Amino acid sequence: MDGTLVDTESIHKEIYRELLKEHDKILTDDLFNSISGMANDNTWDIIAKETKLNIPKKILQKEFWKRAYERVGNCELMPGVGKLLLHLHSNNIPMAIASSTTQHMYARKSASHTELFKVFHHVVCGGSDPAVVENKPNPQIFIVCMDRFEDKPKPCDCLIFEDVLNGVTAAIKAGSQCVAIPPKQALKEDFKLATLILNSLEEFKPEQFALPKYN
């Protein structure tokens, strides 16, 4: 969801950078890329280890979610998202969201797009769903998401869209095809596992994956 459907990754990065700076630590691009797509509970373990930050994780998490909740309420859709979702929905293509966020934050992030997001059959929020124990790059969240469709599709019949390396790795491990839309600052070669790499969903051609072509 974050960075794929709605423009929130830049907000998250800004908050991580702020919190670390307040404790005289630096968020590097490599560190941010390594935690992108993970549940927030795991990110602070990695940050603490890499930066030697000695602050209780619960304090950092609480402050992160407080700032995030204040800032993501009016987040914009990523380019090409609305067109693609409405097109697939009008052609009866089942869709779902598998996000590392919590249900509480999902509601906040999707608040401006409630009608559009009704096209999804279901939403799996890995940050709060008890069925998701392992986080991306582990493929569990995608397996859980697929299993909640009524016809329980095979992973090889599913197409996953991701914007971070951890998500792409999880999608491929799940046995699915994956379209990657990396952030502008990311190195495209890092996403070589992906089935296809795009600069934006505006470039996506459904017929490349045996989906109905845009009219």
Rank of each mutant, 00 (worst) to 15 (best):
T4S: 09
L5Y: 06
V6L: 13
T8S: 12
S10C: 13
H12R: 07
E14W: 03
I15A: 05
R17V: 04
K21F: 14
K25M: 08
D29R: 05
I35P: 01
A39N: 13
D41I: 15
D41L: 15
N42W: 10
T43H: 01
D45F: 13
D45I: 12
A48F: 06
K49G: 10
K49I: 07
E50Y: 08
T51P: 06
T51F: 06
T51H: 06
K52G: 10
N54E: 15
N54D: 15
N54M: 14
N54S: 14
K58C: 03
Q61P: 04
Q61T: 12
W65F: 15
K66F: 11
A68F: 10
G73Y: 01
N74S: 13
E76T: 08
L77K: 03
P79Q: 11
V81I: 11
L84Y: 06
L85Y: 07
L86W: 08
L88C: 11
H89C: 12
N92C: 14
A96T: 11
S100F: 10
H113L: 00
K118C: 00
V119P: 00
F120D: 01
H121W: 12
H122Q: 05
V123K: 01
V123W: 01
V123R: 01
G126P: 03
S128T: 08
D129E: 13
P130V: 07
N135Y: 09
P139Y: 07
P139W: 07
I141D: 01
V144T: 04
D147R: 08
D151R: 12
K152L: 07
K152Q: 11
P153S: 08
D157W: 11
I160V: 14
E162T: 09
V164K: 13
G167A: 04
T169R: 05
A170I: 01
I172D: 01
I172W: 00
K173Q: 07
A174D: 04
A174N: 03
S176C: 10
Q177V: 02
I181W: 00
P182Q: 05
P183M: 01
K184M: 07
D190M: 05
L201R: 06
E202P: 06
E203L: 10
K205G: 10
E207M: 08
E207T: 09
Q208D: 14
F209L: 08
A210N: 15
L211C: 06
P212T: 10
K213E: 15
Y214Q: 06
